[in-house]
């Protein structure tokens, strides 16, 4: 495990070193951004709508029963901004995009395409890892920004139409506006940024160390997704602890 962590840190360092050449690789970054957006946008929409809805459904009746219907908007809004938006989007991206990255790079490794790049003096870090990392770091926070209002909408719909809650849309959004500031959105975006780096590094690293043919590729994909999710959840705690100091 420590060997892998060391390798991932080295990969991160070499990716940072490659960043000055990012402008030259912009076409690959655009391609990756399109790939991430195309593969995820609809899923983000559905997932966020239902997360917001479930949040309202789980907390709404209790809040209403205790005469706290006025804080339901704030409750759903904060949860989406600070926690569930970035966390669930990161898990979704780890599953959809992280797995694809590990599979593609892993397949290139198994079928000697990475060796072919090296013999042409083309760095796999510059050619494959750096564009994917940049795209991930741009795309995940952007998807989180998109997911937050969709989640709010889901919460508002359930709050309005569920008979045991029945909080009007205006009340919901009024409370949401009152209770949420830019700092809460930034909190979520910082988390998304950290998660994006973790998913990109873990998935690319897993692809680069793939061995053993098609079965090895499958193993790498599974490891990339599972390790990403575990690391996301661990980082979530520490990033939250860190960000609380700035409140």
């Amino acid at each position: 495990m420590f060997y892998n962590i060391g390798q991932i840190i080295m990969l991160f360092w070499r990716t940072l070193q490659a960043l000055p050449k990012a402008w030259l690789e912009r076409k690959k970054v655009y391609d990756q951004l399109f790939e991430i957006g195309n593969a995820s946008l609809l899923m983000v929409c559905i997932l966020s709508l239902f997360i917001g809805g479930v949040l309202a459904l789980e907390t709404g009746p209790t809040l209403v029963e205790r005469g706290l219907s006025g804080v339901l908007g704030r409750m759903v809004g904060l949860s989406m901004c600070r926690e569930l938006g970035p966390l669930m989007m990161a898990i979704l991206i780890a599953g959809r995009i992280g797995s694809a990255m590990a599979a593609e790079i892993g397949s290139m490794r198994v079928y000697q395409e990475l060796d072919a790049l090296r013999t042409m003096n083309i760095s796999p870090i510059n050619y494959l890892v750096m564009p994917r990392m940049i795209a991930m770091v741009i795309a995940l926070p952007a998807l989180v920004v998109f997911s937050i209002p969709v989640g709010w909408l889901g919460g508002a719909l359930v709050s309005t139409f569920n008979a045991s809650i029945s909080v009007p849309v205006e009340t919901f959004f009024h409370d949401l506006r009152e209770g949420i500031g830019v700092a809460d959105v930034v909190h979520g975006l910082v988390k998304a940024l950290v998660f994006a780096v973790a998913i990109g590094l873990i998935s690319c690293h897993q692809g680069l160390v793939t061995i053993g043919g098609p079965r090895g590729i499958g193993r790498s994909v599974t490891k990339a997704v599972v390790n990403s999710i575990v690391v996301i959840l661990i980082l979530d705690y520490f990033v939250t602890r860190f960000l609380i100091y700035f409140q």
Binding site: M108, E113, D115, A116, T119
Partner: peptide, 14 residues
């Protein structure tokens, strides 16, 4: 300028 022709060709499938 060194080049290698791999047994499988190792062409980039993408």
């Amino acid at each position: 300028r060194l080049a290698m022709v791999f047994q499988s060709g190792a062409l980039l499938k993408s």
